[in-house]
Design a protein around this nucleic acid. Sequence first.
DNA 1: GTTTCGCATCTTTTT
DNA 2: GATGCGAAAC
Length: 818
Amino acid sequence: MSILQYAGYSREGAPAKVTQTTFCCLNILLTVNKTEKPASIITSSFYLCCLNTCAMSFLDELNPVQRQAVTTVNGPVLVIAGPGSGKTRVLTYRIAHLLQQGVPARHILALTFTNKSAREMKERIEKVVGVSARQLWAGTFHSIFARILRMEADKIGYPASFTIYDTDDTLSVIRSIIKEMNLDPAVYNPSAVRSRISICKSNLISPPLYRQHAEMLQQDRTAKRPFIVEIYERYVARCYRSGAMDFDDLLYQLFRLFQQNPDNVVERYRDKFRYLHVDEFQDTNHLQYAILRQLLKYDGSPRNVFVVGDDAQSIYAFRGATIDNILDFEKDFPDLQTFKLEQNYRSTHHIVSAANEVISHNKRQLHKTIWTEREDRDKIRLVKCLTDDEEGRRVADMILEQKHRYHIPNNEIAILYRTNAQSRKFEEHLRRLNLLYRVYGGMSFYQRKEVKDFVAYLRLAVNPKDEEALRRVINLPTRGISDATVEKLSAKAGASESTMWDAMTDWNLEVTDRAKKSLTNFRKMVEEWSSRAQTEPASKLAADILRRSGLGEMLKGDTSPEGIGRRENVDAVLDAISEFTDNQTLSPEEDTSAANSLAAYLQTISLLTDADEKADDGEYITLMSVHAAKGLEYRSIFVTGMEEGLFPSTMSFEDPNGLDEERRLFYVAITRAKEYLTLCYAQNRYRFGQIKVSAPSRFLEEIDQSHFTAAGGFGSARLSNTGIQPVSTGARVTGNFTQNRLRTTNATKPAETPANFQASPESEIKPGQTILHLKFGEGVVKSIEGPKDNRVASICFKNDSMPERRIVLKFAKLQIQE
DNA sequence: GTTTCGCATCTTTTT
DNA sequence: GATGCGAAAC
């Protein structure tokens, strides 16, 4: 690549924008060199000097091993990176380095674990090398592969607008098949069947191979579930007829595509992706690795592949991830260059030592020793609680205390737990103290019922064969199509090996005239959308669908607070579609038609998790599962529910490798902490609606007690017989103390939670008043409507993107302003 | 054909 | 403690 290109001039010679960062570098250089030339007339040679320095400067930020890894550009590279060792930085700078070496961005592929980390990586690269990074393909395995499949779908018999079935859709298909086959759902547990099918796909066992697979068949017989293979067959056939792929299909079908089209497809992608990068390699499964091999292993391949991972952080074995991939990688690429990043830049000494001690109990691992230069702040706090409620209360209190004493902002604090269900108690207590928080991993926006309903209509417009979408909305709002009719349709479709969509036009269908009429109307309506989808902009069509389907009416009719929320959620989908179609960046080879953009939107959202939704813009405390915390870091971490049976989970006891995986999970949890780590456990916890008594987690005993705070403690509170004394902390703070804390913390964010906030009685809120809302700030009440016991105010907030918000007074806390 | 209520069922983690 | 399913009432 030429210097000019690097500086923001494209290959064609047209001047593009010089990035701000480049300018920054220039300016710094100008100052340093005492050159008085303005940036606009700098000569190429000066640029050269400048750019080299620029390049140097980011390589200078790396330690010797990191730098070596980054600058090893050719051939296969494996980086074993301990927690906090600058893994992301190495990956980012490696790509930046490639771009700087003249590798065009379109030849670089980066596969990350979440959409969010892909986005962050792209942004960081762009900061270093400028807009040329935009052409980079970076995303999750699933999203990148979906993108390829969309372009090549016809070659394996799928429509480009194929639907992606999420776990719910998949389960519902399986349930329906089990029913259709008259099997007992208690024996054929749909989730168990689903995961078995998923394992098959991840290991490239297609239904015909399953039929020949003596071991799998034997397993099924022993489990008294001999018909799984038939369910699998029907499931695959049904998905195919519906033009649908499940999550595993996105990988499996891509593998098939590549396998069946060695000349016209694989070759193109081999040529396109000349530099492959894989983040979190330890969490890839066999199938993902097989696809990587397809792209890498062939005669004359440059084999430029750069994978980063840590076997100690492998926590997705349940999804088929296997450490064998790292071992196979070494076998498949004998000239592999391996780098170990062992210096931890994230955490203090106590935390790193504790992590090392814990992980040393695992049997099978690649040897490495993580060390840190970071000085200790506090020791690790161990907190014993009587109940889960006390745990919630004390964590909330400790957060308040830490905020006050160490001035830790909310977005540097996270509460982690093994299961999502544990979030509830923390939410209650954080709310009690007026602390802002966000729960990740619960229900994401796109999983809400009303959103799924609307999305199902959109799916149908793009792909009428989508059976799950059809079933979902065919009688919503009710239009006289009963379950019986739907079942008849389904049976017809099954018998003729076609779809329910086709069965609707079958006049031999034995249903009432009324039902027939409804079906015809419904089909007409969808057909019309379907044809309009070819030409009309996605957002306009979507708005029409909301109206015509009757869904909009239905939601409008519900004036309950929840109903209004639902209506807002559906409107938010419309906004999201506009935003998506406006900002979509596609490469030239991709179809940009209206129909395709709606399909692309639908495919994208089914791969979103709520962790991807919004950047951590606000001042929120984070609540999430340990799994979701992977790759993240916070100054203060609370790992909660450290009890036998919960963490490690009871489910892990049966599997011989289960405990090791749980231990790795715990390792991931504690290494998220930069400075403060608190571990909590409760003796009694509500599960099943009943109190369950449990012992402290065995993992706690694997940490040397010298890392725990020795001070304080309830006299008798001892952790088993190790002599570790859990400390007493904020649990005993007085009400007064808490009040003071509240004011202090709130004082940092006056606009949102003023210290003297006091909600006015609901009855006193009247139109025309200026009011204060804890979240939205100051606003003017425009109007109030609804029955006396459920009044809804339309309020226009001063600093808000929405022109007006509808607030249910029964729940809202508003303070009338003078 | 539609709605509502009560019963039973399970709870790990996620793309 | 939520969610799904079946039965009974509308």
